[in-house]
Design a protein around this nucleic acid. Sequence first.
RNA 1: GCGCCCUUAGCUCAGUGGAUUAGAGCGUCUGUCUUCGGAACAGAAAGUCGUAGGUUCGAAUCCUACAGGGCGCACCA
Length: 580
Amino acid sequence: MPVKSMLRPRSLSRRPVNLCYTNGMKQELEAALAGCAQELFDAQVPVELTRPDEKFGDYATNVALQLAKQAGKPPREIADALAAKAKEKLGGKVSDVSVAEPGFLNLRLSDEALVSSMSTELTKSNEGRKVLLEYSCPNAFKELHTGHLYTTIAGDVLGRLLEASGAIVFRANFGGDVGLHVAKCLYGVVQEIGGEYPDKLKDIPKASRPEWVSAAYVAGAKAYEEDETAKAKITDINSQVYGFHESNDKTSGLAKIYWVCREWSYDYFKDFYEKIEVEPFDKYYPESSTIEPGSAVVNKHTGTVFEKSDGALIYRGQEAGLHTRVFVTSKGLPTYETKDLGVIFTEANDFAYDKRVLITGNDQTDYMKVVFAALGAIDRDLAAKQTHLTNGTVRFGSGQKMSSRLGNVSRAVDVIQTVNDTLASQNPGSDHYTTALAAIKYTFLKHRLGGDIAFDIDESVSLEGNSGPYLQYAHARARSILRKAGGEGGKIDSLEAGERTLARKISEFTEVVDKAVAELMPHYVCTYLYELAQIFNRFYENNRVIGDQRQDLRLVLVQKYADTLQAGLNLVGIASPDKM
RNA sequence: GCGCCCUUAGCUCAGUGGAUUAGAGCGUCUGUCUUCGGAACAGAAAGUCGUAGGUUCGAAUCCUACAGGGCGCACCA
C-alpha cells in the first residue's frame, strides 16, 4: 500500500468498511431490496435505508433514483416496480411500501415487525478484533486539566462502544515522565524541602500531594524563566533524570525524589480515573520506557528512512506534502517523534493489535501524519493499523459571558468540584455526584468528536433540556412506573399512534450504535438517547399507563424503553440510577 | 508565506448528496397540569446554512475563489 493512502482525509477514513452485518431489520430489508433490484433490473446496487420523518414511513431509500441512470428509465417507473416487488417479497414484514416523487421508496413496517425489532442486542461488527486505544496521556509531575478530562471521557466511551461491538480493547496511557517539565518540577521540590532530602517527602499528606507537586512545578517553571542560575540547574537536572533511567539509579537523593514523585503522579491519575468512573487503563507507557525501542527503530533505518541534516536525524516529509521533522536532535537526544515510534512498536509487541486508535488534541494532526508516514516507510502493515482521532480544545464560557465561578481555571478537579457544588446548592441533601458526572460527561460527549467545545458551566450543570441529568431523570421516571405497576406485562398486538412512535424510536437503537461504532463517533448515541427520552416524555404526557385499558401493552413498551435508555447510557459511561 | 480545520437561529450545537416548513437545547414570549416523579409537556417569535460562482434531476452537504476565526509548519512535548 502506498504511503499516501494512509494520509487520506478524515472524512474518507470515517466511512465504514465492514458491512458484514448479521442481524437487524434494516440489514434484512436492505438485502431484500437489493434482491428486488437484481431480479427486476439485473442491477447490483448497494441499498442504503435511511430513517425518514415518521409521516413518510419507517425506512426510505433513493435506490430507484440511482437505478434510473443505469437502467435508462424514469425513476418513478423503477420505484413503482420496486415497490410492487418489495411488497410481494417482504410479505407481513411491511404494512406499506409507497413511492414519493421523484422516486423515493418509503417502507412502513407492520406493527409485528416493528415490535420484534426493538432490541438492545448489538451488532458484533468487531467480533474478536483487537483494538488498542491510547488516550488521556497526561504528563507525570503535572496536574490533569480539562483537556485531559475530555480526552479521557471520549476515549473511555470509544472503548465501551468498541467492546459492545465485540472488540477486545486494550487501554493504553502514554505520558511524559522525563523532560524539561519534570526537571522544573524537581527543582521546585528540592527548593521546597530545602535540599535533596527524599525522607522529607514523607511529611506530605497523601491528599495534598497532587497540589503540592503542582505547586513545585509552577515554582520551578517560574524560576526557569526568571533566574539564570536556576535555569542552568534545571537543565542539569534534566539530563540527570535521563541518567536515573539509564543507570537504573534508585538510591541517590534526587533519584529517590524523582521516583517517589513519579509514583505519586500515577497514584493520582488512578484515583482520578476511579473518581470519574471510567474503565481503568490496562497499561501505562511512561515516555522513558519508549526511548530505547524508539531509538533502536530510528537507528536501524537511518540512511534509508531517516537522514542526517545539520547533525540531526530527520524524516523528510516534504515530498509527501508533510512537514520535515527531527527524530533525533543534533545533540543525540530522541524527540517525541522517536518516542512515539517507540510506543507504537512496544504496544504492537505487547498486544498484537489489529487496529490502534490514538486520541489527542487536534493541534497534533499534522505532526501525527509525519510519524505515521515515517512508520509507513518502516512497516507498512503496522502503519495501516493506525488511526488518529482528535478531540478539540475546551473553551470556557460562551461568547460574551464568561463563567464567573470558573474563570479561566482549567484544572479537571475544579470543573468537577464546581459542577458538584452548584448541584448541591440547587438541590441540597440528595446524592448529586452521580448527577454531576452525568452532566459533565454528557456535555463533552454530545458534541461531534474533533471540534472545539465551549464548556459553559451554567449550561452543563443544567438539569433541563439536552443534558445528562435529563436522561437520568427520564430513566428513573420510567423505572418508577414499572415499580408501581409491579411485574405485569402483556403482549403487543397492534399499536396506537403514540405507542408506535415510541416503539419506532426504540427500534432505532442498534442502528444508531452501529453507526457510532463504524465512525467512532459517540455523539450519535447521545443525540439518539435525547430524542428517545423526549419521545417517551411526550408519550407519557399523553398516555396513561397504569390503570389504562392498554396497561399491559404499555408496560412492555415502558420496559423496553427503560432498558434501551439504560443500555445507551451505559454505552456512553453514564450511570442510570433507578431512583434519583 | 505554505498546509489543515472551522463559519448553520441572540448563545451553544446536530444535520455532511436527497423530498413539502433546515432541526435541537438554552435564552425570550405564551400556555398545559388538583402530576403513573414538573429535572415534564404544548405553542410562538427567531435562519439569504460566512460571501460569490460552479457541478448535479437535487447542495447546508461536493468543487473553485474570497472573507473572518483557529491550529500547525526541524532540533519542545
